[in-house]
Design a protein around this nucleic acid. Structure first.
Lengths: 165, 165
DNA sequence: GATCTAATGTTATGTTATAACATATCTTTA
DNA sequence: TAAAGATATGTTATAACATAACATTAGATC
């Protein structure tokens, strides 16, 4: 077993955020483009700009903040413009909505399967998407036991990160 | 092992909702009153009325729907009136907010420890609070592994209930 | 390049939630 | 029991979040 594997095993529950946000914006845009192509969708200028703004912030972004940032690089921007782009990016899994914050976050794990499970620090507002999916099994159990067919999960854990304790 | 226990074991993942909603409103109000007394808080008329309306619906209630219902039995009702009462009831664990719906639900398990984990049917809009807490262990693991101190969880699973499949 | 479809622009409005300050009610205690 | 302090509610205004509806533009297809 290599060091790398050992480390990854030790950190089975570690966040992907840090590593993935090392991805530069160019790589992220490249990836987003590929995702859209694969889906037969267009990665238009608007979508690209919105994606870039959300991605650039490593914190959740409010729709109206996005709107005002977007306005500085583009004209004719109204709420609908932003919400449509966000809806599209969500549909492609490139952006997540944090329901408990009414805010949007660039997906931190573009290349790997991801689950949309978040840790939100109430203090520094940093949000991390869990790389590991500790809830998957529980979710499977619930589906079987309840005969409830789960289509979307909203899992957001609010608390204090290690730096803020 | 009694039949009752066997049944409860078989249904370890079963919902509490149905059983608990058999609680009549009077019992629920009684319980809410006790909760407030224990906390040294006042269960005022306003709070009682808001609680009763939320409880009466077995579905999630929107704040502004609540507002209009409340207006029919009370005057001088404004949004702040409703939101303040809801905040209070949430703080006592008597009502939950469903973040993904922007709606409020009376707690279905007033007498037992509960976790605020929900199954939401996208079709019939029925919402069930999980009696069982399949996520508790995962949450403990995350806290340890990440040294992230969790204070509040938002766990809402959207899908189709057995009736709507 | 005509036609169709998807995306965006534009205007208006709907929905959800809070701020700020005035008034009323409850509790405590002199 | 009246005064003082604390808590709750009334009231007005506005902030924050999101979508509807229809016009226009840009891309894709033939």
């Amino acid at each position: 077993m290599t060091d790398r594997l050992q480390e990854s095993s030790k950190n089975a529950l570690s966040f992907a955020c840090k590593r993935n946000h090392a991805l530069c914006i160019e790589e992220a845009l490249e990836h987003a483009k590929r995702v859209c192509e694969r889906a037969g969708e267009r990665f238009t200028d608007l979508r690209k700009q919105v994606f870039a703004i959300v991605w650039a912030e490593h914190k959740p972004v409010k729709a109206y903040d996005l709107l005002s940032e977007l306005s500085s690089i583009r004209k004719g921007v109204a709420p609908a413009t932003v919400y449509r782009a966000l809806d599209f990016l969500k549909s492609q899994g490139l952006v997540h909505k944090l329901e408990s914050l009414n805010a949007y976050l660039g997906c931190s794990q573009p290349e790997t399967e991801h689950h949309g499970h978040f840790l939100i620090c109430e203090c520094c507002e940093e949000v991390r998407e869990l790389a590991f999916a500790p809830f998957s099994q529980s979710i499977d159990e619930i589906e079987k036991a309840q005969k409830f067919q789960i289509k979307h999960t909203t899992i957001e854990l609010l608390g204090r990160c290690i730096k803020c304790q």
